[in-house]
Amino acid sequence: MRVYEEKRSLLVRIEGLPIIGVYCLLILVFIFTSPRVFTGYRIYMSFLQTVPPQLVIALGLTLVITAGEIDLSFPAVVAFSGFLFSYVYRTFGTPWFALAAALAGGALIGYANGILIARLGVPSIMATLAAQFFWNGLTTLLSQGLSWNIVTIRGQLIHSLFVGRIGGVVPAQAVWTLGIAVLVWFILNRHQFGESIMFIGDNVQVAQVVGINVVKTKISLFTFHGVLSALGGVLLTLEMANFWSTQGSGFLLPVMAAVFIGGTSIAGGYGTIVGTFFGMYIIGSLEAGVVASGIGGYWVRLVSGLVMAFSIILNISFKNKSIGEKWNKMLRSQAEKKRNKA
């Protein structure tokens, strides 16, 4: 009997299993509805090109939400860091310095958020909403609402390194973000910092009592998310070889949706990097998939909503204890049947 229980727990323990299932199902449906597009490799390469900037941000946001907080300011970070990057690059012609400036800008915004939230006790939804307006406003002001072309970046090493095509095919940003996802997974699940995040999100009083420095952890967390969002901004700017002052403004809902359909708990205390990873690719594939399947662009939102609802229901029922027990019972009765036969 023990063996069967282990079997069950192994299945439930595979992180993000339901969402991986949804992703595979979705791709299968697309292959069925538009075989010509979805059996070729091009469509997948285009996902690997467009999803990474949002994915980097979603990974950071997963940690923030696991801590029981929220960050609505990342679209502004995407714009501000893109601005810093292209400004420094155009002015000094030094791409690496531009990268450093962009990441520092993201860190600054995140740090400021962290101070407001952890030290002054401003609820994160308000602090980061204000930050979203402020930094977006500042970016518009500084760039005078213009968009800047930085085509010359295409000849630079930084471009081929971060957003080049590996073997002429695979977008480098996809590999980078995969690496970052693995790193963030280890930070959340295997590092003291991640454990502090989970305990804070689970129960702040417990976190304090066991000796976690809640204020410091939260400030580091928002700073980290600022840096990741800035990296997302840089990837976007590099890929487009262009900065525009409203870039990133469309990221807010898709990125949040990805984290939640991935299975991260809005109540805090639990977050899944694998879930977010596949959640982001689901969101990123939906539009192209629905359009390619020929049922028309008007359907995109509706189908997206359905897929999100479905994923969330699946996640909940997977975690739900009663269903876990039913599953357990089923395995048990099967085991008994086998034993009876023998």
């Binding site: 989970m198 305990f199 689970d202 129960n203 009083q205 417990v206 976190a207 009592v209 066991v210 708990s265 205390g269 639990y270």
Partner: peptide, 10 residues
């Protein structure tokens, strides 16, 4: 502690 010394979801 009397209460609140374990985190439930962990």
């Amino acid at each position: 502690y009397q209460d609140k010394s374990l985190a439930d979801k962990q």
